[in-house]
Amino acid sequence: MKCLVFIKQIPDPDIPPTQFRVDTRTNTVAPPQGSSPAVSLLDELAVEAALRLKDALGGEVTAVSLCNDPVMNVIKKPLAMGADSLILLQDPAFEGGDAFTTARVLAAAVKKIGSYDLILCGRQAGDWDNGQVGSYVAESLGIPCITIVGKLEAVSGKIRAERTVGDTVETVEAPMPALVTAGNEVGRARYPKLRDIMAAGRKQPTIWSAKDLGLDPSTVGAKGALTKVRRLYVEEKAGQCEVLKGETPAEAGENLALKLRELKII
């Protein structure tokens, strides 16, 4: 079983809202001093799902990332978790793209890789939260796509995935090769062991440029994008919380109940 997993390096998702700033000139995040980027959590869950398949069936897992400014110990996390190899797609031409151009680059990388059974990625990345790239890649490659999955099983050439739709859990089947996008339902991603982090540090990623992928630079990055972010901003929260007091925390709790009655909510 050969799995490809798309991962994305994003600004630290745990930057507290109070310290979250954007650069309004470039419409990008200005992370606070000392914060380190991270692999988008749902992509980590995609890696986890791929590794579970590898644990059960053997095979290999390759992580693929479009990333022009990788922080090596971050982007190598899938290797530390147990992936076999890492391919980085880097080119100045990729700058300023959108979900559509990102998918174009990733699909080209998949074609260059050639053989695979399953592609996995997070249902959406924790920066733009678009939730588009997986579907776009599957469409471009002409393979089936199952979005927002939890548990996975590979059975006689088919991938079988659980999806939660409201109060119903659907089991969906598709012939491989296929693409699935991982949801929270995957559960928790494994923590890399120190030994594996060290080993990952010694592995070198493969790096491919637009030219390596046979991509016309005018079809990717800002030039190929269909949408454009006009403005990125932090909304001023009302911040008018009335903190209810009391002699004791218990009394404050009672006062909260009384307040809700006063407002006729309960």
Binding site: C241, E242, V243, G246, P249, A250, L258, K259
Partner: peptide
Amino acid sequence: FKLSQYGVVGKWEDVLPAFHRKV
């Protein structure tokens, strides 16, 4: 608290039982 209209500062173990009783 930034997103709430009303809040109580306290450990939930201390606040919730009294809140529940009053409700």
